[in-house]
Nucleic acid binder design. Structure first.
Length: 279
DNA sequence: AGGGATACTCGGCCGC
DNA sequence: TGCGGCCGAGTATCCC
């Protein structure tokens, strides 16, 4: 499940592979992936003849910047891009194919069909969903202990839920939220507005450090070993709690526990992340 | 009004 | 072999 470090890795790879390519046509095999424009047929028409100038990232979204259009793509759990020859055999999980004028093609494959694509006129993407309401980038000056404190102060929700919702900070999903809370020694069920100043500062550092290291290692490859480009992240070897239910805590040896928080599987160390759950 | 909870999308996979 | 339930990111929708 791609979170900020994985999406950042994909962005860097795509910037090496598809810059300067011009779209010949787009084949849409599963129209539900296309969320904008409403008529998915117009998505293909609008991109024909457009050249890709760069790929950017905002939170977990990829932005493909064309001449006059911007395509905003979210991979959700299993979305993947692969560049190949245009006659590469697409399997049943390949839902969108961008054919280029140089006889290569970008294949979008997504087993769960959960991914989304929005197409905008260049410049209008920031004022509309899905980018409109996103919080600060965690690895930018816009995110700070102060901004995190303000976000925490304004809500009665538990801290894990706050971190997942992309308003206090973007880019965290289930894996890195659990890892950051472990690193900060904060229980996932603590109420956000109950965190002390010291704890908030610790959480800020933990988020930044966890994401920085994961980006450096090319993200995590969790439960998908058939990554076709051979490009596997290495951060999964650094996970302290995610996917480690029952295994000894790397810090204190206590067995890692798994609970549900807001419907999401949540991993934590019952010793290292003690502290009042304020409930 | 605006925060919070819930429904919805989807198919591989698990347990029975 | 079949089948129901689970998982999960983000948005739409409802509720308070």
């Amino acid at each position: 499940m791609p979170e900020l470090p994985e999406v950042e890795t994909v962005k860097r790879t795509l910037n090496q592979l598809i810059i300067g390519k011009t779209v010949k046509h787009v084949e849409i095999r599963w129209p539900n992936i296309i969320k904008r424009p409403e008529d998915w047929r117009r998505f293909s028409k609008a991109l024909a003849g457009e050249t890709i100038h760069r790929v950017r990232r905002r939170g977990k979204f990829l932005l493909f910047c064309f001449d006059s259009k911007v395509m905003v793509s979210h991979l959700r759990m299993e979305g993947r891009y692969r560049l190949a020859a245009e006659n590469y055999p697409a399997d049943k999980h390949t839902h969108v194919i961008f054919y280029f004028t140089d006889h290569t093609a970008l294949f979008y494959r997504d087993v769960r069909k959960f991914g989304t694509m929005h197409l905008f006129e260049k410049g209008e993407e920031w004022a509309l969903l899905p980018l409109k309401k996103l919080g600060p980038e965690p690895l930018s000056p816009a995110f700070s202990t102060d901004s995190l404190s303000r976000a925490c102060a304004g809500t009665t929700r538990v801290v894990k839920t706050l971190l997942l919702d992309q308003k206090a900070v973007v880019g965290l999903g289930n894996i890195y939220t659990d890892e950051a809370l472990f690193r900060a020694c904060i229980h996932p069920l603590r109420r956000a507005d109950g965190l002390s100043g010291v704890e908030t500062a610790r959480l800020y550092r933990a988020i930044v450090d966890t994401l920085r290291e994961a980006v450096r290692l090319g993200g995590s490859t969790v439960r998908t070993f058939k990554n076709s480009q051979g490009r596997m992240g290495l951060f999964q070897q650094k996970l302290h709690v995610y996917g480690r239910e029952g295994l000894p805590c790397t810090r204190c040896g206590a067995p890692i526990r798994k609970i549900k928080v807001g419907g999401r599987g949540t991993h934590f160390c019952p010793e290292c992340q003690k502290g009042g759950t304020t409930l």
